[in-house]
Write a protein that binds this DNA or RNA. Structure first.
Lengths: 335, 335
DNA sequence: TTGAAAGCGCTACCAA
DNA sequence: TTGGTAGCGCTTTCAA
């Protein structure tokens, strides 16, 4: 194994000089810099992560806690994960993956053992049980999602309230007066996942303001779930002209069921989805949608974590504004 | 921070004794064991990962390289990842996530810096460019997938050749004599991903043996891709009675297109999928399928890695036998 | 601008 | 069955 001492010897300097060349924590003459870098390359030197962590009390590792649930959108989770890893690498950090079923215990473990410098937690619930541990952690924590009391924690998320509002506004602008929200699976509501409630609030408040009548239904992520919801919705006395779907998993089934029942999108009924753009365009009808910016959120989470590691405390809750993209599934009400 | 010295003092023993209690590497009297464990709990001691890695030359971390491609099935990747993490934890290891775009360089980096004790690589191609680096690594590597020359590497995968054979056999047993294979997207073939070719071989060899006529088409993961393929397939002079679909992403679109064109599954046409079971049952018709055992593969990969870390060299290529589950999408040919 | 050297917390060898 | 202690490779303070 090549050590810093080998490099130092080869470059004719002391180990500390090599260290400083690498860390940039003190000024080095250009000549020395070059000799050191040359030796590093020639010998193929890579600093030992353990030794570095031990001496500096920094592991250069971020822990990322991912949910294993299957009732939430897996591609979104994956996008988020890859964005996090990619962004972390730009800060010379690696990502350690924890699953949510390790619980608060797992969070404590990686921090207490100095395995990770900071923690990013996905799929945060409103009454998030891990919050107390996270807050006591003595290491930065960034949550994706907003718990009821975010005091002392950094949180990033899509502004789901604004997203709900924007969905209603878009349909109202097109003349829709009777719309439904097909929400996530009942399990998501029961769990108190924070985004579901926030979206709903924005949806209903704006509907009230704009004089739009609404119905809201949860929907299990299956064909049966979709059939059930549509049976209910399409049988109502006041005909619906718009559907907002906050449930990525049922987009495909919903569209085929609508087609099977002879409802044309968007002429008979407008469909507006909340989902990643690639999913929206992969449907039989390219869907108008509000983007779930998983990649941006991942990058932002890493950025916040790094900033906190640098000792910069900042605004705690950061919500990204929703972006609505009109495609082919929403249109004016046809009389 | 609580150190091993603190624990030793509290328990009235030496630091080395505490270390041995933890590692089990030498026998300890029951009384001492208990006092040490008690102190550990009382003080909330967690061994420092960096110090441990430095002293023992073992990080207790496994690196997992995941692809970021969107043309392969994301839920399968995710299943694999969570299985890997879960299994690794049972060996007291954590998982460091690398993305494939770090390339061979990234593999070298994590090993050279002693960040990881072993590496697991997903999405291996037949002419896998990372193989030389992997082989030279001086740390165990386990591949998911089988490169052309697996010499010196551990590989695990589904036995795709047998899977292809079993698909044909199932349909042949039901009386089908004209079947098509709808394969992965063209990009997968171009990349030379090893499983695609192996499946194809099993499919064709068995078809030849059983006197079954076959057509094979790649299919882009989109509605247009599905339409194109079906336009071709359904226009053929000899009517197809069976479809084997080795492309998870198009299952939903394929079924709705078939329905739209008035083909009933399985009476008009049998559909046999290669996909995870949860995906198979989530379709409008519960699909007969050959399972892709992502979770088992993940667990197995970890197991092989751990064994190699313990110095046990073993059979290099391990293929899991396919398991075909008959559901509602395949049936006898209707005359 | 550079060097010397004291630890960081743990493991594992050598002794007893 | 247990203790003492020399390092593991690096960072960072103190000194020059």
């Amino acid at each position: 194994m090549v050590t810093i001492a080998d490099v130092a010897r080869a470059a004719g300097v002391s180990p500390s000089t090599v260290s400083y060349v690498l860390s940039g924590k003190r000024s080095i003459s250009e000549a020395t810099r070059r000799r050191v870098h040359h030796s590093i390359r020639k010998l193929g030197y890579h600093p030992n992560a353990g030794a570095r962590a031990l001496a500096s009390n920094r592991s250069n590792v971020l822990a990322l806690v991912v949910p294993l649930r299957t009732d939430l959108n897996v591609p979104v989770v994956m996008q988020f994960v890859t964005a996090t890893v990619t962004e972390a690498r730009t800060y010379d950090h690696d990502v350690l993956l924890l699953t949510a079923d390790e619980g608060a215990e797992g969070l404590h473990r990686v921090v207490a053992s100095s395995l990770a410098d900071a923690i990013i937690v996905m799929d945060v619930e409103a009454a998030e049980p891990r919050v107390p541990v996270l807050r006591a952690l003595a290491r930065p924590a960034v949550l994706i999602g907003v718990p009821a009391d975010p005091q002392g924690l950094a949180c990033v998320d899509l502004d789901f309230t604004a997203a709900g509002a924007e969905c209603v506004a878009h349909l109202a602008d097109l003349g829709h007066r009777d719309i439904a929200l097909i929400g996530p699976s009942p399990a998501v509501y029961e769990r108190g996942t924070s985004y579901a409630g926030r979206f709903l609030r924005g949806f209903e408040e704006t509907a009230a303001q704009r004089g739009v009548d609404t119905v809201t239904l949860a929907c299990a992520p299956s064909y049966d779930g979709v059939r059930e919801v549509l049976d209910d919705l399409l049988a109502r006395p006041r005909a619906l002209t718009g559907l907002v779907v906050h449930n990525e998993a049922i987009l495909g089934p919903l569209l085929s069921e609508l087609a099977r029942r002879g409802r044309h999108v968007p002429d008979d009924i407008s469909v507006l989805a909340v989902c990643p753009p690639d999913l929206a365009v992969a449907q039989s009808v390219p869907l108008s949608s509000v983007d779930i910016p998983a990649a941006e959120l991942g990058g932002l989470a890493v950025e916040l974590a790094m900033r906190r590691l640098d000792g910069l405390a900042e605004p705690e809750v950061r919500l990204l504004p929703p972006r609505l993209k009109v495609r082919s599934s929403t249109g004016p009400v046809v009389a």
